[in-house]
Design a protein around this nucleic acid. Structure first.
Lengths: 116, 116
DNA sequence: ATGGAACTTGACGGTTTCGCCAATCCAAGT
DNA sequence: ACTTGGATTGGCGAAACCGTCAAGTTCCAT
């Protein structure tokens, strides 16, 4: 069951994405061009980023804004990679799409225990 | 000289996405739970949407926020076609993602020669 | 126990968006 | 010419975010 109630997905996602990149708040802040305290406010306080800061954070972390916003479930390794793959999916025939689905399904199941 | 840089991509994208759905500002506003004037402000004025309103707009239009923000090139939100697959991609490890990419790449190339 | 690094929290004034309303413009259609 | 529906624009107070700073916490290493 989806234990994570949507208390504040953004905070979680931001922290997760930052951890994924192995950055501390100050480093992320530098990359995104904003003060360290702001990052902390986003992760712990009630603040939500503005239009521009959201973009800056997503770019600095190389994740989609949809992920940060909780609109997409993808931990989003590389936006470019996933983007290309997704674009290519559109070129597939119906049955090839099914093939691809099965293949990915396999990978997912196989990779679950290798979480970390 | 990249002077041709759109001054405000968001405005364009918002208008485009709305047109794509065949909605007028009032209708979009209703769907997103906003006053019609706000939509107009976004499309024509200097205002940029807040965190919550950005989400609302993207949801109402069924596009990614990355698209609206100009961080992605395709509206590509309605993952209805490849929904499950796209969702699963997020669960893949970096290297499995690469595998999947190659696999799909193969299918695409193979499918092209077989006509449509 | 002392020190430092990472992070949290609270406050401040300044800026921007918020929702709302009213006025206005514009391109039809009648 | 007049009206109508869609869109633009501007002003209003309220609310939220902004960057900044200063103190506080927690935890780890010396």
């Amino acid at each position: 069951m989806p234990t994570s109630e949507p208390i504040d997905i953004f905070k979680e996602r931001l922290k997760a994405a930052r951890a994924l990149r192995g950055l501390n708040q100050a480093e992320l802040a530098a990359k995104a061009g904003l003060p360290p305290a702001s990052v902390s406010h986003f992760e712990s306080g009630p603040r939500k980023p503005s239009f521009d800061n959201l973009k800056a954070l997503a770019t600095a972390l190389d994740v989609t804004t949809d992920y940060l916003l909780g609109r997409a479930d993808t931990p989003e390794a590389s936006a470019a990679t996933v983007g290309r793959l997704h674009r290519d999916l559109g070129k597939l025939t119906e049955q090839d799409l099914k093939l691809a689905t099965e293949f990915v399904d396999l990978l997912v199941k196989r990779g679950i225990k290798e979480g970390e």
